[in-house]
Design a protein around this nucleic acid. Structure first.
Lengths: 201, 201, 201, 201
DNA sequence: GATGAATGAGCGTTCATTCAT
DNA sequence: GATGAATGAACGCTCATTCAT
């Protein structure tokens, strides 16, 4: 039933939101599953209906935001490739700042030490790559990128750069302004990366 | 007897050094008391001979360094008050950088959340204030500061500023250079703070 | 309606078959309800439509086989009582071997520790006794056993013997050949048990 | 202190004895650490002072018996090698029977699936091999076995045979009489194995 | 002062079972 | 009848802390 499904979605959202709030505040290690579930009024076991392991909830934090970014870029029909990429990078780093250091730290940790993630459980990194692949594939189809564009490789490369920036930002404790870096990246690195495949018209 | 005292001092130092090394490397939460004691080859219980709680060991990290700083300033018989204060701040922040973020974070945590510290167990913050009071009191006695100098208040104020800087440095992940800040502080804030009490001669 | 009934019967069979396969392979304790239901493609809750507790599914394993045995004996119109009993015992132990130790162990466990079985949920033991009672009652009616035959008592006694053998076989890990034992039993114990009530003709 | 040590030894024994009793009765999977510790009146955590993991306690069951066997064989100064080996095998299998199937099953499981045993935690298998090596080495030194005897290899071979018998005995549910097998082994296999190294005098 | 055995609260995780849809 | 989201008790294990020796 649609209603059942919707209720479940809401429960999951309650858990993710509680996790986001508590982890951003106290750090991943200082928040227990019990804290999260009792904060949002569900049973402890319910957490494990939605996440195989405590760590996995972190992957879902910011999901709504980052999904919306993907949609937004796909909707930019009038814009050139360079602009799309710059906007994507900007929005991405904005999301990073929005989620905060503690959560980013956990994202990075999960990438560095993927442990035994169940197959059908994509890390945030994989989610991000997949979304960018979508964007690039779409650009190929509407003729903004050439048919030879190595979509997968480029997606990995750009996302890696963004994760690198996120990491630096975390390690720096959040001082430097990612927007400045993004500016430089979009104008230099990224453009150089994509230049060979961008079609002029 | 002296020998026993000395042996005890050495045991404590072994523990503190082990704690410093391990915490700096892995973070306070990821180091257990067992890790610390087995690393330096003493029994678990010995830890609690010297520290009431696991957190307390952090207060002693850097103790030797910060003590030496105090001694050094007191020995600067020829220098003016402004120079002493500037030097103190510089050395202080140098010690902060030397101990590293993970340890500073724990210092700050202990100040923010003093919990149920046993009365006769001064936090690092209190230790630092007391030392600065010593320095200021000495300056009053040698006539560098006026007899009306609110020693305690000023000590708290300056240490607070330094702790503020330490906090910023931690939150920034260690990027910005505290020395620059110290320069400005010593020249402006600190001087303004102490100006009314500094005696000209 | 008939169709619905049939569909339900099939669902139940799917569950029992999955349970049989998995339990025989891994043992009752190492198979979860989730394992069973996801193995046969039904929802977790469906299991509880058919069984009040996880343990109860074991009672239904081999049901088809043991039912068929009962039918077969009832159909042996031409045979004498001794032959019927011997055939029943043989077939019974054959079914036991067929289901395997792990499942038998669980049958025995359920008999030994009936816990809070819901009233209308006969254990396999009760099912077996009831079936044998049917066979004996039929024999009384066709004149093979005297009217004084204590049907219920005898059924319990014989089934107990067979369960004893099953238990021995389980405890022995399945080495000795139950058929040999059955041979001796049918010829000695069983015959002596039933002798007073078997009518000669 | 000796007293402390002794008290600890007793605590460990209490735990092992409780584990032996409960596991032999209900099987490893149906006994929790809580069951064991509360049965013998110690705190849950105490269990983990002595054993890294729940499984490890099984390795210590029967320890006293098997140690005594080793001592006994070493004390058989007057006996020939063949007799020593036969006695060892007999006593070993007697110990196996004494501990019961459920515990043997767990021993075998731990050998088959050593998981991540900590280095200094020998499995029962390793303990048994080491003890037999001792016995053989002693025999070499007193001149019963030649200097060329491949002590380690032979120890492994004989223990493997005994474990093979234990496994068969478990799988058979305990029916066949290990003593008979041992008889044959000691007379045939074992003697053939050791024959080339036994010195006649 | 030093020890290390003992403690017990707390954590992450599993899973049989319930029940509204 | 079938579903699957929700539950909560129970488990294995960790670890800061206490205390008799």
């Amino acid at each position: 039933m649609n209603k059942r499904r919707q209720a479940a979605e809401e429960t999951k959202k309650k858990i993710v939101d509680a996790a986001e709030k508590l982890i951003a505040e106290k750090g991943f290690d200082n928040v227990s599953v019990d804290d999260i579930t009792s904060f949002c009024g569900v049973a402890k076991g319910t957490f494990y209906v939605y996440f195989k392991r405590k760590e996995d909830v972190v992957q879902d934090i910011g999901y709504a935001y980052f999904s919306a970014v993907g949609e937004e870029i796909l909707a930019m029909k009038e814009s050139g490739m360079a602009e799309k990429l710059r906007r994507y990078s900007e929005k991405f780093m904005h999301g990073v700042q929005r989620c905060g250091i503690r959560i980013c730290r956990q994202w990075i940790k999960n990438v560095l030490d993927p442990a035994d993630l169940p197959e059908n459980y994509p890390s945030k990194y994989e989610f991000d790559v997949a979304m960018l692949e979508n964007i690039l594939q779409d650009a190929v189809e509407v003729g903004q990128l050439s048919g030879e564009t190595p979509v997968e490789t480029l997606a990995h490369l750009l996302i890696s750069q963004l994760y690198g920036m996120m990491t630096c930002w975390c390690m720096s404790g959040g001082t430097f302004e990612p927007k400045d870096w993004v500016g430089r990246f979009a104008d230099e690195q990224t453009e150089r990366l994509f230049a060979p495949y961008i079609k002029k018209n």
